[in-house]
Design a protein around this nucleic acid. Structure first.
Lengths: 359, 359
DNA sequence: CTGAAAGCGCTAACAC
DNA sequence: GTGTTAGCGCTTTCAG
């Protein structure tokens, strides 16, 4: 008998109150309740009646069943954000931003990590077909234009977050070129002329933009960009380690400053420089894109270009909701400006005599 | 005409294929399709028929409508994880762990941040009543036993993650007492006798356990715990800063080592020690609970006790699914062991002469 | 201005 | 072994 869980632990079944209960309690029809509760426009109801309905709702502790509503309206009121497997702390504020914007509009946010054993195809298919989310926020698939098109192709409104492709999709990005300029111009103003850049894969739009901003800033200062000073890295600490070491090993003379593409990479760069006997910032200035808690926790504290990642998540969600609510013509491509350059202690004027590595 | 979005952009409506389409295509009844697709046990169907059904599903690209299924079964196949507002990186692996376990079992994971403007009450209510999630993973409400009981009281299966209360709820925690012992014993083995502890609020179960482990380890080594060496802190970098400064200001003689309750706090402690002219680890050894990327990015790299937070998220989810699937009798209280102590460079033998702060 | 009734797509008795 | 049928709770024409 303890097995007939239907009666023992009703959970949310059985005692659940439906719209019909409310209509009985309020002495009106189901239709009226539904209309009042959804705030139906073109509805002129007696104030007294509407109050009676709200009273009944409150008394019975009623909440509409989302599954029933969803079945009827073909909208799940859920969106999903697809994230790479990576531990990059930059995603946390994006998620929080997206979540806040979603709930403000009555939507739920599903998180979905793009695991090893799933192709982008499978993920989109699962989210769109199986879960029937109303829209997708995509932070993965940086380079593969084809893949990124799929959700749109699958008919699910999609906006790219911190990504863009050549395709006509909605996206929200930060102007990485401007971000890179901010960082590099700071270094130049300090007197640096030999500035290296640890970039992401150059096939990624973001990384290409950063390289562009970096190059432009150098040229504007009359400095000829040295290809040897750009090393293609990833976005994580491990990437930063290997690429910094590579830079230090292969570069002659050494740069006096390094501009890194992410906090994690920059933190790793500081570490590797120190391991190689280079003092930061005296022997090597280091600046980074993004900003976050760890910028102030490492030593020396990192000079960074702050991006408002929380806002990016919010904006992306707003664009997505527009897309969902609209007729498909409201594709929006938002480019946020980097917030500011934050000078901390990882950057300073270059030494007069350039340092040499003991090899 | 471009406004009649029903026809222009069918999205997922109109061209959507239902179980009935499949049944027609396969030449069987709807019931049969449903049974085959759900892998109904006690079903003996001709192999040829079942294949015909699967072929039809594939051909039509059919996926069951979760809303319809949900409406019928009163299960949403969604669980939610409730997180504090905090930026603590420790939550990332928990989320990923929970998400992986959820999808493995056909569930979706909703994330919900406990914002300023929402009481725990509202959150539980929203999740349970409005969204009808099947279960809740709660990482908030560390001290308020009452609040934490609410979801259970509201009839939604709940498991606490990295939290526990006196109440009879399911939870998954790491043995914080053992974790603290690992850290403190390491320090003792190095020769430290005056060891401080930056703890979380003592009303929190976790923090109390850590203090207990800390105290026990000291006593076992014949060291009398000095209450002045325990300072109540929070879990974030800012908390670590203020509490470390407080410790350094108020303590005479200074401790030779500090045991911190979280990575962020430890990182901040290192910073503050340095700002006060203390060399880490020579003047001050620092060890921390948890482990994560930043442990190796700060200087000096942090000695830590590693917790498997990803696994904690997974275990919690499994317990939750048990709870959801069961009759309510499967409350499970899981205590994970800390994985290991990781010796890095932030801890070493104490100096012979204890340091003095220049005040 | 309000109500009756027809489903949305699916599952689960209950028949045959 | 397989099919019929009655809803799950809601929205939404269409009547009145």
């Amino acid at each position: 008998m303890s097995k007939s869980s239907d009666d023992d632990k009703p959970h949310l079944a059985g005692k659940v109150v439906t719209i019909s209960d409310v209509s009985v309690e309020a002495g009106v029809s189901i239709t009226t309740v539904s209309r009042v509760l959804r705030g139906d426009t073109k509805l002129s109801i007696r104030e007294e009646t509407r109050e009676r309905i709200f009273a009944a709702v409150k008394k019975l502790n009623y909440a509409p069943n989302p599954a029933a509503r969803s079945l009827r309206t073909s909208k799940s009121m859920a969106i999903a954000i697809i994230l790479p497997e990576a531990e990059n702390p930059a995603y946390a504020p994006i998620i929080r931003g997206a979540q806040s914007a979603a709930v403000e509009n009555g939507y739920s946010l599903l998180v979905s990590y793009c695991g090893e054993n799933q192709t982008a195809d499978e993920i989109y298919r699962n989210l769109a077909l199986n879960l029937r989310v109303d829209g997708l926020l995509v932070t993965t698939s940086q380079s593969e234009d084809e893949e990124i098109l799929m959700p749109d192709a699958a008919g699910v409104p999609t906006v790219l977050v911190n990504r863009r492709t050549k395709a006509q999709s909605s996206f929200v990005i930060v102007d990485d070129s401007a971000g890179a300029r901010l960082a590099v111009e700071h270094l130049i103003s300090l007197g640096h002329r030999r500035i290296a850049h640890l970039s992401g894969p150059l096939t990624h739009y973001n990384s290409a933009q950063r390289v562009k901003g970096y190059t432009t800033a150098l040229k504007e200062a009359g400095i000829d960009p040295d290809p040897a000073l750009i090393v293609e890295s990833g976005y994580l600490a491990a990437d930063g380690r290997t690429s910094t070491q590579k830079l230090l090993n292969s570069c002659e003379p050494l740069p006096t400053a390094i501009f890194c593409n992410s906090l994690l990479v920059a933190a790793a760069t500081v570490t590797v420089c120190r391991d190689n006997g280079l003092k930061v910032p005296d022997d090597m200035s280091i600046v980074s894109l993004h900003d976050g808690t760890i910028a102030e926790l490492i030593y020396p504290p990192l000079s960074t270009v702050r991006y408002d990642l929380f806002e990016m998540g919010r904006q992306a969600t707003f664009s997505l909701l527009d897309l969902i609510g609209g007729d498909g013509s409201e594709k929006k491509q938002t480019v946020l400006a980097p917030v500011e350059f934050i000078k901390r202690e990882s950057s300073t004027v270059p030494r007069q005599v350039s340092v040499q590595l003991k090899r």
